[in-house]
Structures are given as C-alpha cells and as structure tokens.
C-alpha cells in the first residue's frame, strides 16, 4: 500500500496526472476513491475488499469524470481486460490514462466483508484466475500474491442449466427475471456498456419494451447479453450491483462460452488482439447465411 501511495504522490508531484482513481476505506468497508492532490494520497489502500472494477469510470459518457483531466487508475488484471476493451473499441486512448496495475490474489465479493480472504468468501470469478498482475499497465505495485484459494466449480450452475430441456430453462429464467425491476444497475456499472444512448432507451422506435414484465425483461437481458458477447470481461460487477440478486453472470458466461467455441476468442487485456465484434476475417463462418 505504501508503494501505491508513494507512486501516486510522485505522479501528482511530477504533474503527470490531474486525478487518481483508486480505493479507500469508508465507514463500512472499501469504496472507489477519487484523489485529486498529492496530500490526499494517504487515503489510498488496496486489499482483498477491492472488488470494484474501476474501468467503468473511464467511459467517455461520464462527463463529470472526464472533466477532472488526466487520470491514473488502479487496476487488477481482470479490470485491465475492460480497459483493453475500451481502448480496442476506441473509447479511450492508451496514452490518455496512466494505468497502475496491482498484484492481486483474489478479492471478496462484498467490499464490506470484515474477514480475511478465504475459500468460502472469495469472489467466484477469482477462482482459477492465473493472472496475478495485469500485462496492460504503466506501473505495477504490491507484494507478490498467490493464486486465490477455492475450488468451487464456477460453472456448476451453468452446466446444470445446460442439461435442462428448453421448457425447464425457460421456466427458470422466467422465474429469475421476474424479480428484475429494470433499474439498469447492471448496465450502469458495466465498463463495456458505454453507449451514449442505450438501445433500451431509444423510442423511435422503442426496440426494447421498458416495462419490467416478463417480455420486457427478457428483451432487455438477452439483448444486453448479445451486445456483450465477446466483450464482457467477466468482472462480475453486474451481478454484484443487481439489487434483485439475479445471477446475471450466467447469461454473460454462456455467451462467452459460445464465442470461445465459435471464434476461438476469449477476452484479454491485450488491446491489440482483435475481437470478434468489429473484426472481419475472410474465413469467418458463413453457415448462418445458407
């Protein structure tokens, strides 16, 4: 942590940044922090409660963040995939942001979690993570970390659903999505949902019904999963943010499985690696046109 604070102070003193986005402690646990001067850097921390994906704040539609000026952002290896996605899709120029990579051995799901990181409270997405620090970074800070503990099969539920017949699956999703009230927290916290005007907010025509009934909710969630196919970085923020406890990650991970099988692509923190969306190859499969 001292390393992070010293680095932050140095960046301010050398006028390399106008503001720094990291994490701090608050009344209950940990939350994102915007630090604007060298003497504020002692607020910065990094520990197992730093689950938030700060790349979400880099979207150009957040005008009040853009107005801060040149930013440095503290990122874990999973967050770096989102930064890479924003760069790949021309939402962010690599040279416009200073990336401070942190070494990470896993985080808990709940930023207010008082306990140590253990197998039982490790965020599901950390299990099996092999990247201790982001490759996409200007600086790396933090002590070396070991791989996160935990042996849960992340996709046990997904496999369970895949073994259901279509009627059972529909019944399951009707039930799960019935709790959705269309607050759109899933969209707002997602770094890859950066559209100035989301398709669900358009009225001419109204592509997606905005009402939180079954039909509207299916339209919204399936459209979002499709729009994120090949782009979702699996940070789990949408699930964490959902006030109705809907396991949204299932949809995104299913889409990721399909993209991987079909296009041999998984999200990466290398912005130069072309993604299926936005890339055309001569050998792209054409069977859907036949």
């Amino acid at each position: 942590m001292q390393e992070l604070r010293d680095l932050a102070r140095k960046l301010f003193q050398e006028r390399k940044i106008d503001a720094l986005l990291g994490y701090e402690c608050d009344r209950r646990g940990v939350r994102p922090a915007f630090v604007k001067a060298a003497d504020e850097c002692d607020r910065l921390i990094f520990d197992q409660r730093c689950v938030h994906n700060l790349a979400a704040y880099l979207s150009p539609r957040r005008s009040h963040v853009v107005a801060l000026g040149r930013l440095a952002v503290v990122i874990k290896s999973c967050d770096a995939r989102a930064v890479a996605g924003l760069i790949r899709e021309n939402q962010l120029k690599r040279e416009d942001v200073v990336l401070i990579g942190v070494r990470c051995g896993g985080v808990v799901l709940n930023p207010d979690e008082p306990g140590e990181l253990e197998s039982r409270n490790t965020a599901p997405r950390c299990v099996g993570c092999e990247q201790r620090e982001p490759a996409l970074a200007d600086h790396i800070v933090g002590e070396p970390k070991t791989a996160p503990a935990g042996n849960q099969d992340r996709d046990a539920r997904l496999s369970e659903i895949e073994s259901m017949n279509l009627d059972e699956r529909l019944g399951l999703w009707v039930d799960l999505l019935s709790r959705c009230t269309r607050c759109h927290a899933c969209r707002q916290v997602c770094p890859m949902c950066f559209c100035e005007r989301c398709v669900a907010d358009k009225t001419l025509p109204a592509w997606i019904e905005s009402s939180p009934h079954s039909r509207g909710n299916f339209a919204w969630h399936l459209t979002r999963a499709l729009h994120l196919a090949g782009r979702c970085v699996d940070c789990g923020e949408c699930e964490r943010a959902c006030p109705a406890e809907i396991p949204l990650g299932l949809l995104n991970r299913k889409a990721a499985r399909i993209v991987s099988a079909r296009y041999g692509y998984t999200v990466t923190d290398d912005p130069s690696k072309p993604a299926p969306i936005g890339t055309y190859r001569l050998d792209d499969g054409q069977e859907f046109m036949e």
């Binding site: 939350r31 994102p32 922090a33 915007f34 979400a56 704040y57 009040h64 963040v65 801060l68 009230t181 607050c183 759109h184 927290a185 969209r187 707002q188 916290v189 109204a206 019904e209 905005s210 009402s211 943010a241 959902c242 006030p243």
Partner: peptide
C-alpha cells in the same frame, strides 16, 4: 464522482415513487 447513475438506490427505496408513463 463515484455514482454510476444506476438508480438501484431508488428502486430499492420504500419511499421513492417516481414513475414513467408510456404506451405499449
């Protein structure tokens, strides 16, 4: 600065009552 503008707070609030009216 930190706020994502999602409205999860309003949708979870027992007192918030703002609503939209639209035709379907």
């Amino acid at each position: 600065l930190r706020c994502h503008g999602c409205g999860a707070c309003a949708f979870s609030c027992p007192a918030c009552h703002c609503f939209d009216i639209m035709d379907e």
